[in-house]
Design a protein around this nucleic acid. Structure first.
Lengths: 200, 200
DNA sequence: GCGATACGAACCTGTGCCGTTTCGTAACTG
DNA sequence: CAGTTACGAAACGGCACAGGTTCGTATCGC
């Protein structure tokens, strides 16, 4: 974050935005290729980005900080929601989980950072700011459904989110259920649940 | 697997079963402590088990084979099922996913092997013999429910399994939804789904 | 006892990363 | 122009640890 727009303009050669992007992208690439967080090294990132190590250390204090910033670039806003029906909006949102979503690398990256996230509550907390906004979109659609009667009034929102997201995430990350097609799951899962979620 | 019971009894000093167990247990311990598969090393396992490296290489050709054997020891049979209602049986089965299940280390181990499993279809296939039997128990309960009318006749069994297992696994592995209690989820998820699954 | 095998410890050789610094060059301000 | 900062490449010393083998000892059947 470069302070403010109207910064006093520091002297000397300004940092290259290209280099910024190259470093972040190299980090995500390596993760997407199966490099676990513990194996991920500044050296490898630098080499992949065609950049000197010093250039990376000039911007980030270490691997952890770079990783967080890199993952944060994935939190693009979701799609426009039609807003017609809760069912359609949920399907649209859940379809964003996967190669067709914000970044095609996401499903490959996730398993590589899971061990790191599950290491301790602190590690997990550190990435809530990235995870939460996406979850929040689902939450709001569900709330809308409860409000306008499309969904049951006594619905447990958090639980419902878990049941919606969990299966699709598991199928994307590993194909835990070999006989299912991850692309069709959003619609299938929503429809399977609706009968239980809907007022009648 | 030592051939057969009535083996011809090889000459020389026999291999210690204790050592076998120590190696396997050390492997699982390291995984449970957050060691990713790529970081996992024969050296660390040997040291942890109080065993020479040569002793490990004498039994397994490499890390991969040892890992598979170690994980295979986790596939203990599930709990006895009451068989009273499908609901209760499902809850009992799903509760097995977690520290109270077959092996308390399982939830910690899973995230550490996920990157390895998701690396390629081959890696994923290699562990189907371990995963499938557990999934199969859920499948059979669902089939029974369809047969005896406790569940809808047109139920998509595979999809239902995914919706049952996915959320609970995600919550165990990482606490993806911070506000949910993984211990209560089996019952909650089953009940949430039943209304949609049941004939009426 | 004997031969045969298993055992733990120590050793060998190689690889890789860390975090920093130094270099010559490039980009920008005033 | 001079002054300042960024850039890639290379090198730094240091450390950790990998995979595999060797060696003296321990444990077995006969």
């Amino acid at each position: 974050m470069p302070a403010l727009e109207d910064a006093p303009r520091a002297p000397g050669r300004p940092r290259s935005v290209r280099v910024d992007e190259a470093i972040v992208s190299a980090t995500l690439d390596l993760l997407a290729e199966g490099t676990t967080v513990d194996v991920l090294s500044i050296e490898a990132i630098a080499s992949r980005a065609g950049v000197g190590k010093a250039t990376i250390y000039r911007r980030w204090p270490g691997k952890e900080a770079l990783l967080h910033d890199a993952l944060a670039t994935l939190k693009l806003p979701g799609p426009e929601l039609a807003g017609e029906s809760v069912r359609d909006d949920l399907i649209a949102l859940l379809s964003q989980v996967g190669p067709t979503g914000h970044d095609p690398r996401f499903p490959k990256i996730l398993p590589c950072i899971l061990p790191h996230l599950s290491r301790s509550p602190e590690h997990y907390q550190a990435y809530q700011d990235i995870i939460e906004p996406r979850r929040n979109r689902v939450r709001q659609v569900l709330r809308r459904g409860v409000a306008n009667g499309e969904l049951r009034a006594d619905l447990d929102i958090e639980l419902t989110m878990a049941v919606l997201i969990g299966p699709i995430l598991m199928q994307r990350v590993v194909r835990w259920h070999p006989d299912l097609d991850a692309d069709k799951m959003p619609e299938q899962v929503v429809d399977l649940l609706m009968a239980g979620i809907a007022p009648h």
